[in-house]
Amino acid sequence: MSPNSTPVRIGDLSVGDGRPVYVIGEIGINHNGDMSICRQLIDVAANAGCDAVKFQKRTPEICVPVEQQSKIRSTPWGDMTYLEYKHRVEFDHEQYAEIAKYCGERGLQWFASPWDVPSVDFLEEFDVVTHKVASASITDRELLRALAATGKPVILSTGMSEIAEIDEAVEILGTENLVILHATSTYPLPAEEANLRTITTLRERYGVPVGYSGHERGLQISLAAVTLGACAIERHITLDRTMWGSDHAASLEPTGLQHLVRDIRVIETALGDGVKRVFPGEAEPRERLRRTTA
């Protein structure tokens, strides 16, 4: 990591170089507006050893383009307009209070990607530990200014973005309390579009902790990101990839999430500190096998 990078404090955790990888299970809208499914997904994240779960918070009248609001969509609850559907999968204040309480009981941090300024205000009522900028929102200057004004740490996803767009977002947000996530917003993500070396590019350019938000199937790309120094890993999670909804197919099921966290922790240990030394396990073979000749 860039020598200019300082770890960012998110709640009681420190995210950055030399710190444990911050693992985020993104529930997003995979709860399908059902609190029972939501609680099960929180359990999945907690049981796997995630540090946090992340949601998405929208004001549908603001976020759904006017020309799409009246379009009819087939849903598990019958045919309805797209605007009605977006309301159907949004949680209200009472439900988020339940989420906050249950995450606390399970030892998880929680936060969300607000997609509009009223949603920032909504989340601030719960004093969330951080805010996430979705890749789609990186050019929403009004939203970025509202997030910067909270004084909270911000996690910035960079899918669908050119460097100039990231530059402008970072200019608004500042670098003092910023974590950037490399991402490619293809669902599901093919390996040839992962471009993981961008993790190094972003770290060197902005001097902040850089992680990875993945939309691929499987674990390999996320684990490779950890070996390249990603300080955070975010993956969508689901109870079943065949469930109805737009994000389930590119999500990890419970066993996959457990394996991801397990393997991240192994890789963290295996990376070491880069100082070449003789380890205790080598002492006996060294004594027995090493030949020194003139």
Rank of each mutant, 00 (worst) to 15 (best):
V133S: 10
D121P: 13
I166G: 00
Y212E: 01
L83V: 01
L83N: 00
F279C: 14
S246I: 10
Q95W: 13
R291K: 15
E268F: 03
D34E: 13
K132D: 05
P76F: 15
V208T: 00
E98C: 07
V278N: 07
A191I: 02
P153F: 06
T59W: 10
G229D: 01
R9N: 11
A183N: 12
K86N: 10
L41P: 06
E253A: 13
R141K: 11
V208E: 04
K101V: 05
G274L: 04
V179G: 03
D43N: 15
L173K: 04
G218S: 01
E216I: 01
L173G: 06
I155Q: 03
E234Y: 01
V117C: 06
E124F: 10
I42P: 01
G159F: 05
S185F: 05
K57Y: 07
R286N: 09
T175I: 08
E216R: 02
V170F: 05
V226K: 03
C50I: 03
A148P: 00
C231W: 01
I155R: 02
E268V: 02
L173T: 06
R217Q: 10
I166T: 01
P76I: 13
S119N: 14
G174S: 08
I42E: 07
I138K: 00
G218W: 01
A224C: 01
H248D: 14
N195C: 05
E26P: 00
T59M: 10
A136W: 05
T175S: 09
H215G: 08
V266R: 12
N32Y: 05
S185A: 12
G274H: 06
V275H: 14
W77E: 12
F122A: 11
I199S: 02
G25S: 08
C103K: 07
L108Q: 12
E168W: 07
W115Q: 10
T184A: 07
A225W: 02
G16H: 07
P285C: 04
V117K: 10
T158Q: 03
S246A: 13
I42H: 09
E216P: 03
V275A: 14
P280R: 12
R141P: 00
V226M: 04
I138F: 05
R262Y: 13
F111L: 14
E176C: 07
K86E: 09
E142S: 06
T139K: 09
V128N: 15
L239W: 12
L181H: 15
